[in-house]
Structure formats: structure tokens, C-alpha cells
């Protein structure tokens, strides 16, 4: 078992009558990429703000690198890097001025830890005299990450760093994170994109302030309780309705041009399903067994009784 970087026990946070975090407990090991996967309003930002000591929990305990978020907040602030959802850059400062600013408030300078950000910063360095406000979304994201890293934090909190970012930039960003992990930094990251779950070492699926499940992505997938067919025909819209009426069918979810059809018991015979669809006027029918992905698992947990929703 690796050393612990973050330990959270029974943390609760309410905003008036809304429960933002309902009794969360988890631990993050040193040097792992830990992902909080969940939609807007799940409680991700509230949790990050508590762990970075900018918000107080109503109850419970949280330790970051062995330090208490309430008692030792000053020490924690020196140890962590935080990239909030809306990049906290100064739009009227240049790229270089932003970076210098963040280095200086932590009593460092750009040179000292340049090796940490070189990989990322070199991609935007030629714009160093440009104001941050004039950068594209992808470049702002890279600058914000550089700013969060420049004081060599032990733990890096990235709150939805890829939201609203295109698929290419998202992939490049994750490649950067995986290289960063090799320098030993613990990375806690949140995202609403389920397809990014597989890039984390471990993930927590979070919804309405509850952690529905924590495990390695592979572990979550192997615990999926149903069996799946991936079904394709010439009319996906009608297919979804027809599959729901198929005897024994569980959940039916669209995935691109196919539908995932779940069965709690054994999968029915492929030819039987095919005949059923043909009878309902479908053409170009394709039926294959398929493995679930994280989104299948998330949806299943969302509708499973016992989880508040």
C-alpha cells in the first residue's frame, strides 16, 4: 500500500437546504491520478474548495499530506496547486507576467522550477508577451496549469480542466498529466467527461453529493452487473423505443449510432432479437456482445435504488 496523500472522513457540506456533499469519505495515495467523475452540481467544486482550504466543511475531517484543512491551512496552501474551473488568470497581464506573479506569491521564481512546466509552457512560450485575455481556450488551459505548477506543489487539484475544450486538446492535456505524474505529484482531477475516466489510476463516480463508487476504472467496469448487446439498425430513434419493449430487456441507452441493451440474466439468442427487430421493420440489423464502458456503469449506478438521486 502506498503512502497516503489525502484522507477525507465523513465530510458534509450544506448550502441552506441543499446538501452539496453528503458524508464523503475516501483516500488518495501519493503519486496517483485520482479522478472525480460526475456532472455539474455533483459536488466536485465544493469538495476541491474544501481540500484547498478556501471553504469550510460543516462537519467531518480532511487531511492533505497529513495536514488538517482547518488547523494547518497555511501550510497546505504552500503545498498544493489549484486550478479552478474558471481559470484564475489575470486577463490583463501577459502570459509571462501571470506566471511570474504565481511564482512570486509562493516565494519562488520561474527559473527554479522551470523543468516542471517546460513540457507545457514551451507550447505557449512564444506568446509570452500576449495578454492572457487574448489566448485561445486551449492556451489558457496550458497557462493555468503552468501557474498551478510553478511552485512545485506536492498535490495538484484540477477542477474540470477540460470542460468546453475540444477532443484534441483534451487528449493532449491528459498526456501532459500522465507525464507530470512521473515527477511524483499527486493529481486530483474532476471531469464531466466519462471517457476520461480510463485515464485515471482510480476514480470516484460522484452524483448529487454522493460517491456512488470508488475503484480503478477496470474494477468499476468488471463489477457492472449486467450483460450487454450493442445493437445497430437503420433507425436509431425507433430502435431505442423498440428495444425497451423487448421481453426481458433492462436499460437501453444510445451510444453513438448503436444502442446498448442490458440484460440482468443471460443474453437472449441473437437470432431471436434479430427476428424481433425485423418484425418491427428494422433493416441493416447488427447485434454484437459488448463490454460496458464507464458511462454504462455510471448510468446503472444512477438508477440503482439505494443511491439517492
Amino acid at each position: 500500500m502506498q503512502a497516503v496523500s489525502i484522507e477525507v472522513k465523513n465530510v458534509v457540506k450544506r448550502y441552506k437546504h441543499i446538501v452539496a456533499l453528503a458524508d464523503l469519505s475516501f483516500t488518495v495515495s501519493k503519486g496517483e491520478i485520482f479522478g472525480f467523475i460526475g456532472p455539474d452540481g455533483a459536488g466536485k467544486t465544493t469538495l476541491f474548495r474544501i481540500l484547498t482550504t478556501v471553504l469550510l466543511a460543516d462537519s467531518g475531517e480532511a487531511l492533505v499530506e497529513g495536514l488538517d484543512v482547518v488547523r494547518d491551512y497555511k501550510k497546505i496552501r504552500k503545498l498544493v496547486g489549484y486550478m479552478p474551473g474558471r481559470f484564475s488568470l489575470y486577463m490583463d497581464l501577459t502570459v509571462e507576467e501571470n506566471l511570474t506573479f504565481y511564482a512570486t506569491i509562493f516565494g519562488s521564481d520561474i527559473k527554479q522550477n522551470y523543468h516542471l512546466i517546460k513540457d507545457i509552457y514551451s507550447q505557449i512560450e512564444r506568446f509570452k508577451d500576449r495578454r492572457a485575455g487574448q489566448l485561445s481556450g486551449g492556451m489558457k488551459q496550458k497557462l493555468a496549469l503552468s501557474c498551478a505548477l510553478i511552485h512545485k506543489p506536492s498535490v495538484l487539484f484540477l477542477d474540470e480542466p477540460t470542460t468546453g475544450v475540444d477532443a484534441v486538446s483534451r487528449m493532449e492535456f491528459w498526456e501532459m498529466l500522465r507525464r507530470l505524474r512521473e515527477s511524483g505529484i499527486t493529481i486530483v482531477v474532476s471531469t464531466p467527461y466519462m471517457d476520461e475516466a480510463g485515464l485515471c489510476d482510480r476514480i470516484a463516480l460522484i452524483q448529487n453529493g454522493h460517491i456512488m463508487k470508488i475503484d480503478k476504472p477496470e474494477g468499476i467496469i468488471s463489477n457492472y452487473p449486467h450483460r450487454l448487446y450493442s445493437v445497430k439498425t437503420d433507425d436509431i430513434y425507433r430502435l431505442l423505443t423498440d428495444l425497451k419493449e423487448y421481453p426481458g430487456a433492462g436499460s437501453v441507452q444510445a451510444f453513438g449510432q448503436s444502442a446498448h441493451l442490458a440484460f440482468t440474466e443471460d443474453l437472449p439468442d441473437r437470432s431471436h432479437l434479430s427476428a424481433y427487430l425485423e418484425q418491427r421493420g428494422h433493416r441493416h440489423i447488427g447485434i454484437e456482445k459488448t463490454e460496458p464502458n464507464i458511462e454504462d456503469c455510471f448510468i446503472d449506478l444512477m438508477v440503482t435504488p439505494g443511491v439517492d438521486g
Binding site: D40, A254, E295
Partner: peptide
């Protein structure tokens, strides 16, 4: 559909 949960996202496409 940015940032919404997978079920809401699918309902929206309906």
C-alpha cells in the same frame, strides 16, 4: 449538453 449527466444528455437528444 456540456456538463450534464449521461441520462439527461440522452434525454436531450430525444
Amino acid at each position: 449538453t456540456g456538463g450534464v449527466d449521461p441520462i439527461t444528455r440522452r434525454n436531450f437528444w430525444n
